[in-house]
């Protein structure tokens, strides 16, 4: 087995394990810690895939910002351990259906894919110019319009913060 494969299997194992453990953990703060492990390891996986910028942006954005927001939310609302019961899938038929659905995705996703396309960004070219430069150029040149849309999307939470300041009426409705 080559080094790449060993690394890949390590990352894959930890990613799957921490996702599983995180979602079965009843204490929300510990669950978030497992998810933190998951996000950091996904960053490591991106390193293996020669996406250095993305790897660290993954840690900065997902682990350093989004997950912190969740954590602060948990601490502020004082969410304690939840009861062990299911919301959906309460009977065995629905569980089987859900399992079939997931395995359908699994088979569909991994078997029907044909890998023919070859782009222009070979590893040598990336090393020559610098991957972050090519990424930035591609982003701003070819995706200008999505970027503008994204700006509006990110504007929404900034405007939505005002919702937090709406005073409650006496009858309890917001």
């Amino acid at each position: 087995m080559s080094v790449v494969r060993i690394l890949f299997f390590y990352f894959a194992f930890v990613i799957l394990l921490s996702a599983f453990m995180g979602l079965r953990q009843r204490s929300p703060v510990k669950a978030l810690l497992w998810i933190l492990l998951l996000f950091v390891h996904i960053g490591g996986l991106y390193l293996l895939l020669n996406a250095e910028v993305l790897a660290f942006l993954q840690i900065i954005i997902y682990a350093g910002a989004i997950l912190v927001l969740y954590l602060i939310m948990l601490l502020i609302l004082d969410v304690r351990e939840e009861e062990r019961s299911m919301l959906y899938l309460k009977n065995w038929q629905s569980r089987i259906w859900a399992g079939l659905l997931v395995s359908f995705f699994f088979i569909l996703g991994s078997l029907t894919f044909v890998n023919k396309h070859r782009g222009e960004h070979t590893l040598d070219k990336l090393k020559e110019v610098g991957p972050s430069k090519i990424l930035g150029r591609l982003l701003f040149e070819d995706f200008t319009f999505p970027l503008i849309i994204l700006a509006f999307l990110l504007l929404v939470p900034l405007l939505g913060i005002g919702l937090l300041f709406v005073k409650r009426r006496q009858d309890g409705s917001a």
Partner: peptide, 20 residues
């Protein structure tokens, strides 16, 4: 290649130490 990003990423993880 991404020295500054590495520093920012780990500085971001340091917040967890404080909150936890």
């Amino acid at each position: 290649h991404v020295g500054i990003l590495v520093i920012l990423a780990f500085a971001g993880l340091g917040v967890y130490g404080v909150i936890l």
